[in-house]
Amino acid sequence: MKIVAICGAGIGTSAILKVNAERVLDRLDIEADVTASDVASVRTTAADAQVILTSPELVDAIGATNADVVVIDNYFDLSELEAKLEAALG
């Protein structure tokens, strides 16, 4: 299972998304590799990803992909992350 957290620079907000996604996956007892990346390299970094986590503002920039694009509004709301990840992975 591969999950990619995407942000504009690949080294800012995606890091928060990554660490909180790992917490939620741990809680759900799901094994997954979560990486942080940026919009510019999404084609490469998310080529084999099942799930892309990102902001509503970046969905258009990510464009067409085989991965499930999961949009997170509040990066610090673990229950939002848990519900959306569970729906995408379940």
Binding site: G8, A9, G12, V39, S55, E57, L58, Y75, D77
Partner: peptide
């Protein structure tokens, strides 16, 4: 960054 990518840096209410 915001001009280029939008308001994605607003990560929580």
């Amino acid at each position: 960054m915001i001009d280029e990518f939008g308001a994605y840096i607003v990560i929580a209410p």
